[in-house]
Design a protein around this nucleic acid. Structure first.
Lengths: 168, 168
DNA sequence: GTGTTAAGTTCCCCGAGGAAACTCAAAGCG
DNA sequence: CGCTTTGAGTTTCCTCGGGGAACTTAACAC
C-alpha cells in the first residue's frame, strides 16, 4: 500500500491516525481492553489473518501502546496488555462506539450498551470541556495554533477556523 | 487488500471502523468539518492521490456522511459538506486529537489547541456520562448486551466484561 | 485559440492484506 | 516412547487497493 507517512505532519489527528487509522487496530485495542489478550484468541475473535495480527501487535508494542508479557512460564506463553497510552485510547473507542450505535445500528438497537457504574445507568458519552464540564460541540469550539506548530497548509485543524472559511 | 467486511458484525466499533478505519477518512472529515470542502483543496491539503480521494468521497457520500453540492453554476463547481451523520463524527475526531496531543506531541507541545467558546478557555475533551455528567473511564463503566445483539464470539465489547476475564 | 481552473479518470506498478500451510517448543496422553 | 494438542508466530502465494502522474472534460479569461 505504501501508506503515506502521517506521523510527521503537524496535526495531532494525523499523528493519531498514522497509528490508529487502520481497520484492525481499533478492533485489536477494543479486544485487548476488554480482556482478550492472547494471540490465538485475537485471531479467532477478530477473524484477522495471523500475519497481519503479528504485524499490528509488533507495531503497537513498538509504539508503547501495548506491552508483551509472559503470563506463564513452562511452557512460555505471552500475551498483550494495554499501557497507559493504550488505555488512554478508551475515549476514542467510546466515541466510535457511540457513533456506530447512533448511525449504524439496525432497528433492533445497539448491540451493546455502556453502563456507568457510578450512577448505575446505561449511557452514552458526550465530549465535555475539561474545565467547565459543558458539552463541546463543533459550534461552540474553535482552534488556535498551539505551541507545537503553526496553522497553515497541511495543518488543518478541526472546527470553525479563525481564518476565513472556504466558500459555501 | 480485500478488506474484511466489518459492517455486518454485531459491534458498533466494528461498524464505525468499517467506514472510519482508514487513514484518509479521518483526515478528510477533519478538513471538511474545518471548511476545506473542495476536491482540489483536499488534494493539496492532504497530499492524497486524486484517485483515492475520489473513491473516499464517493463512499462517504454513499454512506450519507457527506453530500455533494453544487456551489456555483456556470462553470459548474461541486464541493462536499458534512451531513448530520458526518458532523456527529466530531467527538471521534476530538478524541483522536486529544490522544495525539497527549501522546504524540513533541516537547514543543500540541500543534493546535481547542478553545471552548462558552467558557473561553483552551481545553481538552473528556468523555462524560450523558446522564450525570461525570467522566466515563474504562474502570467505571461496563458493557451489557443491548437489544441489537448478544455478546459472544466476534461480539467483544469494550471495558470490563460481566463474564469472566481472560487470564492475566 | 491558448491558458487556466476545477473535478475528476485512466494507466501502470508495487506493496499490503487474506488464506492457509508450515515451524518450533512444551505439555498431555496412553 | 511416540502421537497429538496448544500457543505463538512465520512463510508462501495470490490478489487487490494505494501512489503517482498523465489524461479528460468543461467553462471561462485574455
Amino acid at each position: 500500500m505504501t501508506r503515506t507517512p502521517l506521523a510527521d505532519v503537524a496535526c495531532s489527528i494525523a499523528r493519531a491516525t498514522d497509528l490508529f487509522g487502520d481497520a484492525w487496530t481499533a478492533l485489536i485495542m477494543r479486544d485487548v481492553l476488554a480482556g482478550v489478550t492472547r494471540f490465538d484468541d485475537l485471531v479467532h475473535d477478530l477473524g484477522i489473518s495471523r500475519k497481519v495480527l503479528a504485524a499490528r501487535l509488533a507495531r503497537l508494542v513498538e509504539e508503547d501502546v501495548l506491552v508483551r508479557e509472559r503470563y506463564r512460564e513452562r511452557p512460555a506463553r505471552e500475551h498483550y496488555r494495554a499501557t497507559e497510552k493504550g488505555k488512554d485510547l478508551f475515549p476514542v473507542l467510546l466515541a466510535l462506539m457511540n457513533w456506530g450505535d447512533r448511525w449504524c445500528a439496525g432497528q433492533a438497537g445497539p448491540p451493546a450498551t455502556v453502563r456507568h457504574l457510578d450512577c448505575g445507568r446505561d449511557t452514552t458519552a458526550v465530549p465535555a470541556c475539561a474545565h467547565c464540564g459543558e458539552p463541546l460541540t463543533i459550534d461552540n469550539t474553535t482552534q488556535l495554533p498551539g505551541p507545537g506548530g503553526r496553522i497553515g497548509p497541511g495543518t488543518r485543524v478541526l472546527g470553525p477556523l479563525i481564518a476565513a472559511r472556504r466558500p459555501g
